[in-house]
């Protein structure tokens, strides 16, 4: 991945400077291409802007003309969504679950991947395939038994249950990715530390984990977005609405709002739910793209 980034940087340097013609001209084909590119950009972004604009309108304004801009900025929609519609609670739950889930996923997948990548033992390749087999099948196939496993362990309707299940379902990809990553790290440093009398645990936490930081960041971003956006698992495992996560609470609100008619509150909720993930993405676009496509580009 590092080399790919380097190549991209050097290419940009080469095109960016000293070549005024680059990116311009090319005749009618380019103009048509540009038109399509702009069109898709508008299609991508307009629905999101519409949600934000509608979140600042009043209900009558929303009903009167979906294309109008807000007459005045009604921030009270956000307060109503946060308090009355419990978006605040859902937000807090999501932060807890995803925080716990990502940390636990990183820790457990790094431990498993480290051993699978760097130790020789009998069950090694069997265990490796056991883990990555989980990448192939959608969750809904195991939905019914999963529901009862979680119930029987007394973890139904609990955020702890969600953390454990999120982590378990994040392991296959994370282990797969990190095993490949640990294999690329040099042996020598760990060997030297071992000769100096360093224990295996110390080598792992003090030497290997810091060296694996770029890989852990990619896996962390991938899982952060995946777990933040999780819908099916909480829908099945949690039905007490004080424990809802954001995506689930919002979908539920959309159904209720159909009757209550608080459309502006719903759009405010939508905006609150979209904002954190779009901000994280806007800040770290390159890394997010790399993290999310990491599996596909292996």
């Amino acid at each position: 991945m590092a080399t790919a980034t380097q190549a991209r940087v050097s290419r940009r340097d080469a095109t960016g400077r000293g070549r005024p013609r680059s990116g311009r001209g090319g005749g009618p084909t380019i103009a048509v291409a540009q038109a399509f590119l702009v069109l898709w950009a508008v299609i991508s972004i307009l629905p999101l802007l519409w949600a934000v604009a509608s979140s600042l309108k009043s209900d009558p304004e929303i009903v009167a003309d979906p294309w109008s801009l807000p007459g005045s900025l009604r921030w009270e929609n956000f307060a109503r969504a946060w308090e009355t519609a419990s978006i605040g609670t859902y937000f807090g739950n999501t932060v807890l679950v995803v925080g716990g889930g990502v940390v636990l996923t990183l820790l457990l997948s790094a431990m498993a991947a480290y051993v699978l990548a760097r130790f020789e033992f009998r069950l090694r390749s069997a265990l490796y395939y056991f883990f990555i087999a989980g990448m192939t099948f959608p969750v809904f196939m195991a939905l019914v038994p999963l529901f009862f496993v979680v119930q029987n362990l007394g973890l139904g309707n609990s955020l702890t249950g969600l953390v454990l299940v999120y982590t378990a379902y994040s392991l296959p990809f994370s282990v797969f990715f990190l095993v490949a990553f640990f294999r690329t790290l040099p042996e020598e440093i760990a060997e030297a530390a071992k000769l100096d009398g360093c224990g295996e645990a110390a080598i792992f936490f003090k030497i290997m984990l810091p060296m694996a930081k770029p890989g852990l960041i990619s896996v962390g971003i991938f899982n952060f977005i995946g777990q933040w956006n999780q819908y099916l698992i909480p829908l099945v495992l949690v039905n007490d609405d004080s424990k809802f996560v954001l995506a689930q609470g919002l979908a539920n609100l959309a159904v209720e709002q159909g009757y209550a008619g608080d459309r502006s509150g719903l759009f405010a909720g939508l905006t609150i739910a979209m904002a954190p993930i779009l901000i994280v993405y806007a800040l770290l676009q390159g890394r997010v793209q790399a993290g999310m496509t990491a599996g596909a580009l292996k």
Binding site: L37, W40, A41, S44, I45, P47, L48, W50, A51, S54, I225, W228, N229, Q230, Y231, L246, A247, Q248, L250, A251, A254, R263, L266, F267, L270, A273, M274, I277, L278, V280, Y281, A282, Q285, V288, Q289, M292
Partner: peptide, 23 residues
């Protein structure tokens, strides 16, 4: 363009469902 095209992909599919139901 690549950044903008990627926006819908980072959102939760549930949120996208709610948004498009309204659209």
């Amino acid at each position: 363009y690549r950044v903008v095209y990627f926006f819908p992909y980072v959102l939760s599919i549930a949120i996208i469902g709610v948004l498009w139901k309204n659209i």
